[in-house]
Every structure is written in C-alpha cells, then in structure tokens.
Design a protein around this nucleic acid. Sequence first.
DNA 1: ATGAAAGCGCTAACAG
DNA 2: CTGTTAGCGCTTTCAT
Lengths: 344, 344
Amino acid sequence: MAVTIKDIARKAEVSRGTVDRVLHNRKGVNAEVAERVNSIAKEMGFSPNRAGKVLAARKQPIRFGCLLPSIGNPFFNDLIAGIHLGEKELADYGVSIDVLQVKSFDKNIHLEAIKRLKDNRYQGLCITSIDVPEVKEAIDDIVISGLPVITVNTDITSTGRLCYVGPDYTHGGRTAAGLLSMMNNEEKLFILIVTGSFHIKGHNERIKGFTEGLEAHKMNFEVVCLLESMDDDEQAFTLTSECLKQNPQINCVFIAAAGVKGACEAIMHLHMQDHLKVMSFDDIPSTKALVKQGIISFTLCQEPRQQGYIAIQKLFSHLMSEGKTPMEDTITKTIIKIPENIED
Amino acid sequence: MAVTIKDIARKAEVSRGTVDRVLHNRKGVNAEVAERVNSIAKEMGFSPNRAGKVLAARKQPIRFGCLLPSIGNPFFNDLIAGIHLGEKELADYGVSIDVLQVKSFDKNIHLEAIKRLKDNRYQGLCITSIDVPEVKEAIDDIVISGLPVITVNTDITSTGRLCYVGPDYTHGGRTAAGLLSMMNNEEKLFILIVTGSFHIKGHNERIKGFTEGLEAHKMNFEVVCLLESMDDDEQAFTLTSECLKQNPQINCVFIAAAGVKGACEAIMHLHMQDHLKVMSFDDIPSTKALVKQGIISFTLCQEPRQQGYIAIQKLFSHLMSEGKTPMEDTITKTIIKIPENIED
DNA sequence: ATGAAAGCGCTAACAG
DNA sequence: CTGTTAGCGCTTTCAT
C-alpha cells in the first residue's frame, strides 16, 4: 500500500494539516518541523494520490485555456479533437477547457489573445503562437506570474514554458526524402517546392530536412522553383500553375505546408498527375481525398490529435504533482500515410 | 457541476445508500423505489465520479491479470511496456497487474495458464492466446463467471470477451502491397514469402492482404515460394537460403511474421541484399538494425505499446462504469517505418 | 505555529 | 427493505 499523508504525520508526530502545509511550502511552519517532515516524506517515498487530491479540489474546479491560430485552418481540427478528448477524460477531476481560436499569424492578434488568456485566471495554458520577441516576452510574463504554459505544434523557444509538445519539422522533411529515394528509379529529380511562408520556421525546417535528406541519399536532384503560398489554396494554385507551365522538366512536387489542395488542382488542371511525384504534409480531408485518388503519393502526419491530448494531460499532471516533476518535451512521430493506411 | 449520488438521493427522497444499491443492481430494494431512482438517475444524466469510486475502493485494490505467449518473443516487450505504463498511470487508483508469460502457442500450456488466471481472483483479464475451440470455451467460462476479458494482439472470436485490442492483419498486408507498388518500376516481381505458421490466422491474413493488394494494383507478380519458419530464426535462415539458391529470379521477400533476422541473414550470406526488396513486420531491435542498414526496405508496425496500454485502460474503464458502457474494439494503426523514422 | 474537524463522491458495514 | 455512519487521501477552515 502506498504511503499517505497520514503515515507521514504519524511518523513525524505532527498533524496531517502540518504535513500538508510543509508539502506545499506554505508559510507558518517551524523550520525544524518542516525539515523533519520533508525528510520523512522523501524517505518514505511519498507521492500524492491523485484521486484524493482531485476529490478535495472539487470545490475549485480546474480550468485550462488554449490559444490556437486555427480559424480557417482545418489542420487544427484534429488537434482540437485531442484537446477535447483530454477534457472529457479529465471531466471527473473537475477539469474544463476553453479554446480561444484566432485567425492566422498576425502578431498583434496573438498578443491580444495571450493577454486575454492571462486575464482569465486559468490554472494552465496551452499555446500555439509565433516565435517572435514580443510573444516570447508575453509568455515569460505569464510564466513568472506562476501560470504553467505548454507550447503546442510550434515551439516558442528560450522561454520559461513548461515544455513543447509537437513535431520535429526537420525530421518530417528528412523522412519525405527517405521515402522519395526509395521510390525513385535513378532518373534526375527536378523539384518544385511549395512552402507556406518563408518566415515560418517549421516550413523552412521541413525544406531543409528534405534537401539534406536527398543529399544524404546521394540523389541526383535540382530544386527548380521555391514558391510561397501563404498557406492559401488560391495562391498555391496560381503560382503552381505558372511554375509548372514554365518548367516542364519538373517531375516532383514537395508541398511543405498548407495550400495542398490548390497546388494539386493546378497539377490536375494541367493533366500532369501521372508524370509527377507529389508529397505533402498532414491529412486534412481534402489531402486525404487526394492521396486516395493517387494524386499525392504520400503525406506525412505528425499526430495532431496526440499533440492536443498530450498537452492537456501534461498540464494536468503538472498541477497534480505541483511542478515537482520536471517536464520533458514530447516530439510526436512522423507517420507515413499512403492510400492503404490513410484512414487509420 | 456534475450530478452526484447525493443529488439523486435528495431528489428521490431516499438515502445515498439506497441509491448506491439501485445503481449496482444489488438485491434488497423495493422495486418501485428502484424504478424511481433509476429514472431520476438517467434523467439527471448521472455518471459516477472516478475519483470518488477509486478512493472508496482503496480498501480492496484492483488487480488485473495478463496472459502473453511472450517468452522468447521480443515482439511482446513493447506490448508489456504498454501494460506497465498503464499500471503506472493507474497506480494511484490502486491498480496492480500480474503478467503471466508462457512460451509459444502450445494449446495445453495456454489452457493451464488460463485456468491459473481464473483461479487467481483478478478483477479483469487481458489475454493473447490461440483461436481454438478449447480456448474459446475456457474464455467463455471465465466471462460467464463475471470476469471481464479483453483479447489483445490476437482476437479470440465468437466469445463473450469484452472487446479486442490489436491490429488488422489483412490491412497490414495490404499496406505492404501498396508501398511496394509505389517503389516498383514495372519489372515483374518474383516473390518469396516467409511466414511464421500456416496455422496462425494473423499470418495468413497478412499474406492474403498482401497478394490481394498486389492484384488490386495490377502488379505483375508471382509467388515463387511460401516458407514456414515456425517463427524461428534458424529455421528461417535455412529455408530462405535454400529457396534463394534454387530460385535466383526472386527479387522480393515478404516476411509475414517472426524469423526476420534469420531470413535477412540468409540474404546477406548470399550477398543478395542489393537485388532484393525486403519487407517485414514489427520493429524488434534486430529488425530495427536491419532497416537502418538498408537490408529491409520497410517494416510495418502495429503499435504494440498502445495495444498493451489501451487494453489496461479499457479494463479499468469497464470496472469504473460497471460495464454500463459498451466496449468497442480498438484496431491499432499500421505504421510504416523506414530508416528515417524507425526510431520514432 | 499547529491541531482538529469537515467535506469532496462513493462504498461498505451496521442498525434498524 | 432502508437509513445512518464511517472512512478512503487530501485540502481547507476554524480553533487554539
């Protein structure tokens, strides 16, 4: 049977209340007593019982807040589903979650949203934002005020955030290169890269991983064009169409971000799908359909649902352990999807 | 705030004890009262609070038993790790787990092990066994006695088991065919299939999925040999060596079960690795190494860790909800692993 | 500064 | 047949 607060109290010859005070570093305990209780607790290997904590805490339910740039971006649907799964599983423990959705990556919108979350007195935050100095400052501000913050999907580096939960973008790019190298029969690759934005680190890392991977495999390749779709399908359609027309030698399209549907429509419009190997990321419904149709050879996913779910679980764990256990980053897997396993 | 037993008691004008009795279908309650309480509970949307249940149940800790044919089969290491992860997460709720490991698939050994589990008064069982009549009977026997049973990794069909947690073997084979079709440049495939046992359904389903998948892709192929390794590396080595020597036209090896290392050693011995596409299942350490070396083109994994973890979580959920929520099967994903993402 | 007691939701034991 | 009570581990409040 696990050791409880009562056991410690008995051994230390104090009351349960005192033990509780010591364990939470609350003021008003004699230093010697505190020392004694602490060492006994450690010695006995005490770890608080979740069920007990949760039950006692029911009077003040736990609330988490999330910030996601998810408006107009179906990728986040699965991530949000993961968040809600976590909420459901923790409902018995009094946890409820608010998701604040914003549109795109405008710095001021994000700063304002973060401020709103801060003012809303949550017990924990879960944030996908942009890695710029102002946001970093805002995050650190929150962390200093004692509120735990987990970054999701996109890290915000060098801040006091608890941990990061999300993909390794470079790894995704490298995996695409690895698969492509297995599929290619020594003919030279003329590659069109369609990225989302030159200013988003994850997109750049995917491209870097991809080209580095091709080099590592000693592939004979040339990047013919590098287009910026601004994660917009129309933009992707227009730019891809033009590029393909002007560069008929292209035999491979690497879509590093959103705009998958637009780029693929351009390809289909020009009836080039049979002569092109197309790779993409994520599996939003339109991408799924394109994989099933065989337009896209494969798409790489990075467990969006798990990202949301794990982030919530970690916030809760952190609260339960009062931050005494260090939090490690969780890097989600790179999942290869082809027509056969896209529905998994 | 969620509705509690107390709320129901007040509304039904009975005591909490009575409500508890009704909710657990215990004898000794006036039929009319029971009816009233039940309808009020339903109406108010009552669902028992886990934390409360768990705390109250601490006097009689929960014990689960598992049966795995894991001795000498490293595949099960990850599955066991998943079981222990579940145990760790539920430790606060008084859950502990015994894993009974047996060697191979001998019917009598399994029957005896199942008997031992039954006699051991667990609150739930998690079983990987063989789908034969005697085992079915033994399982049904246990289920009838009121003990929930979940089948893991290999289903035991048409029994009263709660649900199955594990892969879809056919799907795995079909995915292998899909990937192979993407990698192949129209030359005819001469295929050697190395299976584990002709009597294990999962192995047969993988082969069926594979050949059906190749047909669906209109691949030009011929199965030259079909070998039975008995999941043994030495056996696999010997048979594969002979077959490859006698059939030099073979350019593709499909390893449907264990024996991966043996088969690959035969290939390397004959220096044929550069002329063969090799596919396998699972990612035990030796298989991982072979993928990284490039001997195996890809290996397909079916989330062994998740299988163990989910099975335990489901058993616990079932206990917590007193079996009032129906349990659905969980089919694990088919994960494609190539050198770049094998460590994920 | 510390102890005592109540209560979170649920179940089990006892009392009628 | 049903109500009452105690207690699981923990936190909080009140009393000392």
